[in-house]
Amino acid sequence: MSPTADDWTIEPGQGLGRLRFGIAPAAVEALSQIYGSATSRMEDRISDSILQDTIAELGDSLTEEEKRDLLQVYAEQGPDNSSVTEVRDDGGLVLRYEHDRLVELTVLARRTEVRIGEVLVFSDDVPAVLQAAEAINRAPGLYSGTAAAFPHAKLMIEGFTERTTVDPVVMSRRDERYAQRSLSMFETIDTSGDFVPFTWRKD
């Protein structure tokens, strides 16, 4: 099975190439010639016993009420019991499953063939990448810190821009965070928090 350009092309709201939301780990494994072999696989949820031991080690730094609140928050907002993270391609690709269904994927910058349409995501033409993301999102992106979210496309990119004042600016290539750029896709994307809209289109 030989990789093609389509295998590393973003499919808005659906996934990356043949990695579509909802497919099973076995189906991903069948694509290992394209997306690399799994190098690790681990459950995301901390066991109750480990969590209890960790809180106990905090001793008197937390009140009993704070400890109970912490346990309650983790019970309500922590990872699903079925959540599993899998690392492939020597760390270049990270996948997360729930109930044996692909629900999230992250690609690191060394996968230079990743594209949105005809635009290479990890090229140095950041405005072109953001314009392409807006096009498949059919709306301006949402920006917070170093994250840019495109909710309709189920897409988020990190390290391309930084918003420290009102509008985001392109991250300097000399900034170490630029070298650590990543692209993530989510079956369900969360943009709660301090996200603001901004467009890179030049009408």
Rank of each mutant, 00 (worst) to 15 (best):
residue 149 A to M: 02
residue 159 G to D: 06
residue 149 A to W: 08
residue 126 V to N: 10
residue 143 Y to P: 05
residue 160 F to V: 00
residue 134 E to W: 04
residue 164 T to K: 14
residue 130 L to Y: 05
residue 166 V to S: 09
residue 140 P to C: 05
residue 153 A to L: 02
residue 153 A to F: 03
residue 144 S to N: 12
residue 157 I to L: 15
residue 130 L to C: 09
residue 130 L to A: 04
residue 119 V to A: 12
residue 160 F to Q: 01
residue 156 M to D: 03
residue 136 I to G: 00
residue 116 I to Q: 03
residue 126 V to K: 12
residue 139 A to R: 07
residue 145 G to C: 07
residue 134 E to K: 00
residue 122 F to M: 10
residue 127 P to H: 09
residue 137 N to H: 07
residue 150 F to T: 04
residue 156 M to W: 02
residue 136 I to A: 02
residue 141 G to E: 02
residue 139 A to L: 01
residue 163 R to Q: 06
residue 155 L to F: 08
residue 127 P to A: 03
residue 157 I to V: 14
residue 126 V to Q: 06
residue 134 E to G: 11
residue 118 E to I: 06
residue 166 V to E: 10
residue 160 F to K: 00
residue 124 D to R: 07
residue 122 F to L: 11
residue 159 G to L: 02
residue 139 A to D: 12
residue 121 V to M: 11
residue 155 L to M: 14
residue 119 V to G: 06
residue 163 R to P: 09
residue 131 Q to A: 06
residue 126 V to C: 08
residue 128 A to M: 05
residue 152 H to K: 06
residue 118 E to T: 14
residue 136 I to R: 07
residue 132 A to R: 14
residue 158 E to M: 14
residue 161 T to Y: 05
residue 126 V to D: 02
residue 117 G to Q: 07
residue 142 L to Y: 11
residue 147 A to R: 15
residue 143 Y to W: 04
residue 142 L to W: 11
residue 160 F to C: 00
residue 119 V to D: 05
residue 162 E to G: 14
residue 164 T to S: 13
residue 157 I to G: 06
residue 134 E to M: 03
residue 139 A to G: 03
residue 125 D to M: 01
residue 142 L to N: 00
residue 136 I to S: 01
residue 118 E to M: 08
residue 138 R to C: 10
residue 132 A to G: 06
residue 120 L to S: 15
residue 154 K to V: 07
residue 141 G to T: 11
residue 131 Q to S: 01
residue 147 A to D: 08
residue 118 E to F: 02
residue 163 R to T: 01
residue 161 T to A: 01
residue 163 R to S: 05
